[in-house]
């Protein structure tokens, strides 16, 4: 390991947590609490720009909680609070002067269940742009976003039909299109394919591989094979702890921690 540069991420166990030089996002002793329950325990890690970072771990280990802290979605949960810091570039996301509404324009999110608005396909994308004061050509933005989400050809003839008429996989790609229409920096995805069939899943996976050229992607998945297939970096969490964080190849080929090993090899428990 490189000992000469000062570590940007402070962690007791440097061999388990990979250091990311010049990260776009950085957790520093981030703990997340639901009331008195510490769902995420002092996580420190950096996120690489223009790469796909996967967060894996058994159900309930705090993956979603960690992800939702990044765009301050946890603010919506009354007794949830964060200690430690999360830096987006040099901004502390939880600084009291930071507006979460503006933050979310830079950090988009796609959810587990496809959740298009009760609007037309077109409006699903245009609405976000409009409320964000988009001044350009909306038609163009809609087309561009749908193309980027590999959905344009399937929906171009029914843009003004309800988004609910689409299949689950199409709805999820619409949600991705909706998120990327805002041209965010970071795209957060919380188990985006867990409600989808294998073909739709494969489509979304290849879409994400395309999109990493434009965005930094963080994906939570309880499907570790998916993490293996598409991610460049993998973080393994267990009961709120970040156990190991490294290049996906390393995690899947030769993990350092025994717990990672047994989880990756499906021998958990």
């Amino acid at each position: 390991m490189n000992e000469t540069t000062a570590p940007s991420v402070v962690n007791q166990n440097t061999s388990l947590i990979l250091e990311i030089p010049d990260p776009v996002l950085r957790f520093k002793n981030t703990s997340i609490w639901y009331g008195a329950n510490e769902a995420v325990k002092s996580v420190s890690m950096g996120i690489k720009n223009h790469a796909i970072t996967a967060i894996i771990g058994p159900s309930g280990c705090g993956k979603s909680t960690l992800l939702r802290s990044i765009n301050r979605m946890n603010d919506l949960i009354p007794d949830c609070h964060v200690t430690g810091n999360i830096y987006y570039h040099d901004n502390d996301i939880y600084d009291k002067n930071l507006d979460p509404v503006l933050l979310r324009r830079h950090i988009g999110m796609v959810f587990q269940k496809p959740n298009p608005f009760a609007k037309s396909i077109y409006q699903n994308i245009a609405w976000g742009a409009k409320i964000n004061g988009y001044k350009g050509n909306l038609d163009q933005l809609v087309e561009e976003s749908l193309r980027q989400a590999a959905l344009w050809d399937e929906v171009k003839d029914k843009l003004h039909k309800s988004a609910f008429a689409l299949s689950g996989g199409q709805q999820q790609r619409l949600c991705i299109a909706r998120a990327i229409a805002l041209k965010p920096d970071i795209l957060l995805l919380d188990e985006p394919t867990s409600a989808l069939d294998p073909i739709s899943t494969a489509k979304i996976e290849s879409l994400l591989e395309e999109l990493k050229k434009f965005f930094t992607i963080i994906i939570v998945t309880h499907n570790m094979q998916q993490a293996g297939r598409i991610s460049d970096y993998t973080a393994f969490m267990l009961t709120g702890d970040l156990v190991e964080y490294n290049e996906t190849k390393k995690i899947f080929f030769n993990p350092t921690d025994e717990r990672t090993e047994s989880y990756i090899s499906g021998r958990f428990g």
Binding site: N71, M73, L76, V101, L102, R104, R105, G108, M109, F111, K113, N115, P116, F117, A118, W127, G128, I131, N132, C175, R178, A179, L182
Partner: peptide, 13 residues
């Protein structure tokens, strides 16, 4: 809730 979250996630007040 997921519809609200979707809206918040695109930066809605």
């Amino acid at each position: 809730r997921h519809l609200r979250e979707a809206a918040y996630a695109v930066g809605a007040t």
